[in-house]
Design a protein around this nucleic acid. Sequence first.
DNA 1: GTACCGCATGTGGTCGGACCACACGGGTAC
DNA 2: GTACCCGTGTGGTCCGACCACATGCGGTAC
Lengths: 245, 245
Amino acid sequence: MRTHERVLARIEAELVAGRWALGERLPGERALADELGVSRTSVREAIRILEAAGVVRTAVGSGPTAGAVVVDRPAAGLHMAMRLHVSSGALRVPDVVATRVLLETWAIRTAGDRYRAREIGDTALAGARRLVDAMEEPGMSSTDFIAADQAFHLEFARIAGNHVVEAFLLGLRGAIGQYVTEGVSRLPDWPNTSARLAAEHAGILEAVSVGDGATAARLAREHIEEFYVETGLAGELRPDGGLRR
Amino acid sequence: MRTHERVLARIEAELVAGRWALGERLPGERALADELGVSRTSVREAIRILEAAGVVRTAVGSGPTAGAVVVDRPAAGLHMAMRLHVSSGALRVPDVVATRVLLETWAIRTAGDRYRAREIGDTALAGARRLVDAMEEPGMSSTDFIAADQAFHLEFARIAGNHVVEAFLLGLRGAIGQYVTEGVSRLPDWPNTSARLAAEHAGILEAVSVGDGATAARLAREHIEEFYVETGLAGELRPDGGLRR
DNA sequence: GTACCGCATGTGGTCGGACCACACGGGTAC
DNA sequence: GTACCCGTGTGGTCCGACCACATGCGGTAC
């Protein structure tokens, strides 16, 4: 086993054991190297991996914010890995879309159900409502619209309350952004399409806000798949509703 | 922007541009450092991140297998990130189980549908059948049984053909393994339980192999949730089928 | 006594150089 | 023709040094 892997394993073990709580700082790189009897280089490589995985955040300088701070960003690691693999073509866009539909419809259905069960209230939907209002403004640039669209969709993952699903969708965000941007550039009439998309968003939110998770999920599936087909990124739509390029 | 991040961005851009195909080698660390005008240290940190994300694999020595080889392991990065965050408690077991159920039922349903549509044949199910046979052997150790169980479940993700779902489930594997191992240790009568689990596996495979994806998916959901509840890891089962601790 | 300024201090980030273990492959001895 | 050995290039590790930066303490001016 390589030295930096041993360091990584050791740090991971102590993280699990609770040596450092969320928000606390790891010892300095020099101290850690001393403690483990390895070079600073190996410690740095291990920390680099932890940082890429979203477990720690590093900052230079002095004071309580500096150093390697234990954070909690499960999506960061997924995000980077997803982006790299979609970029390199190892993961295909139809697979991304199908997975997105699967996770998002679940999240939206769950959000609607939780609203009906009064586990969440109208304040939880305020963010989504604000985004819908913004997207209904006619003058919005396509870049801003796409950003608001992404935020709107992620909002339900947050509301659904499943952090794993949320992290997966956050990880997919980069890959989704790539094909959405590509798709928008292919559309003949963006103002028209964006108005329709905004209306569909409003419809989804409306269904959630009356507690009808099933309808909201159906609308979301149609919303995502229609856009995908309309842009010509999808060759055909399978009879079972699954997407095939 | 830090130097190793610039190196990472540069390598990523050239990967996307197709400078290196899958299986090809990146230039040596020294050559790369020279080419980019940075130190070998910074190049190494960037490669370390790519390795953690599952984009390259490094090996010492000489010859075609040595060096940093471009590979295609989308699950590697997810796997590490998931394991770290579940270990540290940032991601909760009920969320992992619910996500697992969501992805696996989709994969198994799709596998059944693909079999019915004759997109796949009996040879595709041979691996799963072999695992079921192995798990029905009475003398199997719990460790071996868990390994076979994991392999059995992942088999359908492979058959379903969605690489993103497969990568996500591979990423969840570590987290699943943790709670399953913990759960097994709590069971009063492992031989009895393992025999039941093996029979359930056989039932799922049977449903897939007659093209009944819906039944297979329902059996899989019950299979996963029953075990989870039985071990006492779950406090209660929500009326809608979702899991809550 | 108070307010402000500047520098000592500790942090991660980067660099260059050195040596090691390793695996391949060609050249050499037989 | 075969078996062996060593040159060569690879990543892995270590060391020592310097840099930029943010902080916070201590001294200084008032």
